[in-house]
Write a protein that binds this DNA or RNA. Structure first.
Lengths: 333, 333
DNA sequence: GGTGAGATTCGAATAATTTTCGAAACGGGC
DNA sequence: GCCCGTTTCGAAAATTATTCGAATCTCACC
């Protein structure tokens, strides 16, 4: 099919006026070829249907995701895929939910080769980290579930500021009794809760510990804890949710009691996943630039194959408040 | 690092008691090696850290998605990734939104090799199909936007039945004035609308053409058309949306007018994406087994490298009605 | 401007791997 | 048994990768 077969390297070497060695070296990304010579040879090689291993860079990168259930992942995938496409890199998406799954992935990845891994997981544990290092697979962690150590490169967002922004927004609207739902299970969750506390203290408001609820970052978790908050005698007039899924759950709990957002209770989410604007009412939320995070993580991965030492090891992107329709001043103000 | 470097092929050949040629052939999936010899050599090769090209099967498959904005894609990715993982295959996800983008993907894919492509696009056009064929890349289309021809393998769902199920459910609840929002732009949309018509006729109900609205499968589209439906003098008591995004938009339009689902108007979605259950009220919808579709498509791809001829070329998975809280009998019944 | 240590670039020689091709072994059908 | 086609294998040839020394360049230092 598809015409004549590829000519041999020596034919190409002749055409380019260099030795076969040089051509071979260009083909596999060898180092000792001058830039212009390399370019000339590479062009010829490609012309004849060879693929040229670009000396820097790689063909595929891996994105490891713990669970592919939240709209979260979608944004991340999009960010990673698009950033990678610009660099002519393909992204392999894998779900990894157990150490065994990780091992299976690692096995496949080292067989086929990979330029590096972006992890969005309940962390690769120390075992996994060792294996990655042994297989010489670079790693960047997105939204690290534990405080990122110096040994691991990671990308996150300003969760603490985000928690503050959300709470401050409500305080500025005039709310005083503000509930919060979150999780202590991951680092980012702890930071968001701390942001809430900081904003309350800053405004001179007392923190009622009954108003601080912990649960999973799911709609069900949000609904369960919102029910408890709403059942309090001094029910909050506003609720800060741990993420948008929880916020959806809060909206459901409100509807159950015949309450309306934002008339009766204001709600702030966290993430700004695409569906946040589909909610009724459209959700006021703290925007995490998920796609940008993934893109940044990819660039970290690809950028510093050379300069690992002097690059920053943890990058934090800014969150921002997106005001939609689920927040308003409290009743009677 | 990591211990000694890989021994040469001739060393391995010696260890296995065969010629270097045989070892080389096993390494690249050559054909003329007996099964047991191959196994022995392969084991040794792997032991020494070589990767062995499995002669059947492939290492990566490509999933091409038009837009990665809907919760749609997430389910599909999950299905494909999980089915592929079972077959020890990695899935490369790429967004392709233009012919140029397709060309760039094809370029990369043919460089690095791929076992085949799963497409969820506004179709690869005939040009693209030719190029795929030229590059010998097998193809399966998911949810084909045009009536699937005999030349293309595809996986879809029973959209016509789905449209019927949704409409029938509302009729059985007692609704008579039922609006529908959908799209004629894609084949599945046309089938769903036809299902609506069929169910109405079956029940002996007249179809008011003002009740049949067309718009994009987005929340904005759903909101816009729902506004029009609700503005009618004889506004519908129930609305069948073209997908879940549109249904979210319908819920917003209802809230705008101070109406409540399902008390004032019942709403049925289509897809059953994970967020459907987060809506307020939780969305009654037609479940498309998106993950199963992607998994089936992957199996089609991998299954019949041999038996292309006698396999079915279009597979249709069943939709089912998922009743949640957004539908109820009409007021006054 | 000279000098020399070190880095870069290159290709001949050498090593390793892949491919070709013919021979040996096998398996029925007649 | 004989013939014909098929499978399996490895020696030889072709191709590709790597090593290493020579040539050239760079630049600090005198």
């Amino acid at each position: 099919m598809a015409g004549s077969r590829a000519p041999t390297l020596s034919a190409i070497a002749g055409e380019a006026g260099v030795s076969v060695s040089a051509v071979s070296k260009v083909r596999n990304g060898g180092t000792d070829v001058a830039a212009d010579t390399r370019a000339r040879i590479a062009r010829l090689l490609r012309q004849h249907g060879y693929q040229v291993a670009s000396q820097t860079g790689f063909a595929v990168a891996d994105l490891l995701i713990g669970c592919l259930d939240s709209p979260w992942s979608e944004e991340l995938i999009r960010g990673a895929v698009e950033a990678a496409a610009e660099a002519e890199v393909s992204v392999i998406v894998t779900t990894v939910s157990s150490p065994a799954g990780f091992a299976r992935w690692l096995d496949r990845a080292s067989r086929r080769g990979t330029g590096g891994a972006l992890c969005v997981l309940q962390l690769p544990g120390s075992q996994e980290l060792q294996r990655l290092a042994a297989a010489r697979i670079p790693l960047v962690v997105i939204d690290p579930p534990e405080e990122p150590g110096a040994a691991i490169r990671s990308v996150g967002t300003t969760n603490w500021q985000g928690g503050m922004q959300a709470t401050r927004h409500l305080i500025e609207l005039g709310h005083r009794r503000i509930g919060v739902i979150g999780t202590e299970a991951v680092w980012s969750g702890r930071a968001r809760l701390a942001g809430y506390r900081a904003a309350m203290l800053e405004a001179g408001l007392d923190i009622d510990e009954r108003m601080v609820r912990h649960d999973g970052l799911t709609a069900a978790g949000g609904r369960a804890q919102a029910r408890r908050l709403l059942a309090l005698r001094d029910a909050p007039t506003a609720i800060v949710a741990g993420n948008d899924s929880q916020a959806f759950g809060v909206l459901q709990a409100l509807a159950e009691r015949g309450l309306r957002a934002p008339l009766d209770v204001s709600v702030v989410g966290f993430d700004d996943v695409p569906v946040a604007s589909w909610a009724t009412p459209a959700l006021t939320t703290i925007r995490q630039p998920l796609a940008a995070m993934a893109a940044a993580a990819f660039r970290m991965l690809s950028g510093d194959l050379a300069a690992v030492a002097d690059e920053p090891h943890h990058l934090e992107l800014a969150t921002s408040l997106v005001i939609r329709d689920s927040t308003a001043p409290p009743r009677g103000r």
